[in-house]
Amino acid sequence: MWDKMRAAFLKNEKGSFIIEASLVFPIIFITIIMFLYLSIYIYEHAQLYTYANKAANRIAYAWTNSKTDPVTFELKAPGESDGLYWRLTDDRMLGSLIGLSGGDSGSISVGGSGSGLVGEKLAKFTGVTIPDYVKGTVSYKNVLVEKAVVVELNRPLSFPKVVEDLLGNDVKVKASATVTDPVEFIRTIELIKLYGQELQDSGVSAILQKQKGAEKK
C-alpha cells in the first residue's frame, strides 16, 4: 500500500511549477536589478565625462584670451586681450622655468572662484559647462613643453551595500585638453631661429679670427 502511495506521489506533478519558479525567480530578479544599477552607473559615468570633456575643451580653446564669451567665444569689443606679457606672469611660465610651480599652475573647485588670471579663466568657463550639483576640481598645468587643462569630476550615488561593494558609491571621471597657442609657438620658433643665427654667426666669426691669427704667426 505504501509503495503504491509513494509511486503515485512521485508521479504527481502538481505544484512543480511553483517549486521551480521559487528557485529560478530570485536569480532572475537579482540579475535584472544588478543590470539596472549597472546601467545607472554607466549612464552617470558617461554624463559626467561629457561635462568634464566639454569643460576641458572649452577652457583650452579660449585659454589665450579670457575676454571671449564663454558660450559663443566672441569678443565684446575688437582687440580685447589679456595684454602682451600675460604668458610670462599670469600663465606661470617663469614659475615653470625655475621650478616653483611644480607643473601645477592653478586649480579651483567646481562652482568656486580662483585668484589671478588663471583662476578667472578656469572659473569663467567652468560655470557654464558643469552643473551645480556636480563636484570636482579644474586645474591648469604648465610644464613649458605642454600646457593642459585637467577636469576631474565626481558624483556620489546611493546604491545598496551589495552594489556599492561591486561598483562603488562614487562615480569619478577625468578629462584633459591640450592648450594650443599658435601665436606663442610662432614667437618661440622665431626666437630660436634668431638666437641660432646669432650663435652660428658668432661661431663663424670666432673661427675666422683664429684663422687670421694663425696666418699672421
Rank of each mutant, 00 (worst) to 15 (best):
D3F: 02
R6W: 12
A8P: 00
F9P: 09
L10D: 10
K11D: 10
S16Y: 04
I19S: 11
F25L: 15
P26R: 12
I33K: 03
F35R: 07
Y37M: 14
S39A: 13
I40M: 11
Y41T: 07
Y43L: 14
T50I: 07
A52D: 00
A52H: 08
N53L: 09
R58Y: 14
I59E: 00
I59A: 02
Y61A: 00
A62V: 04
T64L: 00
T64R: 02
S66I: 02
S66Q: 04
T72Y: 01
T72W: 11
A77K: 07
G83S: 07
D90E: 15
G95H: 01
G95N: 10
G99K: 02
L100V: 06
L100Y: 08
S105E: 13
S105P: 07
S107H: 13
G111W: 11
G111L: 15
S113W: 10
S115T: 13
G116P: 09
V118N: 12
V118L: 06
G119T: 07
G119D: 03
E120S: 11
K121Q: 04
K124G: 00
F125A: 12
F125K: 13
T126K: 04
T126G: 15
V128A: 02
V128P: 09
D132V: 08
K141R: 14
K141C: 07
N142R: 03
N142A: 08
V143E: 15
V145E: 15
V145C: 02
E146K: 14
A148R: 15
V149R: 11
E152L: 01
E152A: 14
L153N: 09
R155E: 08
R155F: 08
L157M: 15
L157Q: 06
V162G: 09
V162E: 13
L167A: 02
G168S: 08
V173Q: 09
A175D: 03
T180M: 12
F185L: 05
I186L: 10
I186G: 03
T188I: 06
L191I: 05
K193M: 13
K193I: 08
L194K: 15
G196Q: 05
E198N: 13
L199A: 02
Q200F: 02
S202P: 00
V204A: 05
S205P: 01
A206N: 03
I207L: 06
L208P: 03
Q209L: 02
Q211V: 11
K217A: 09
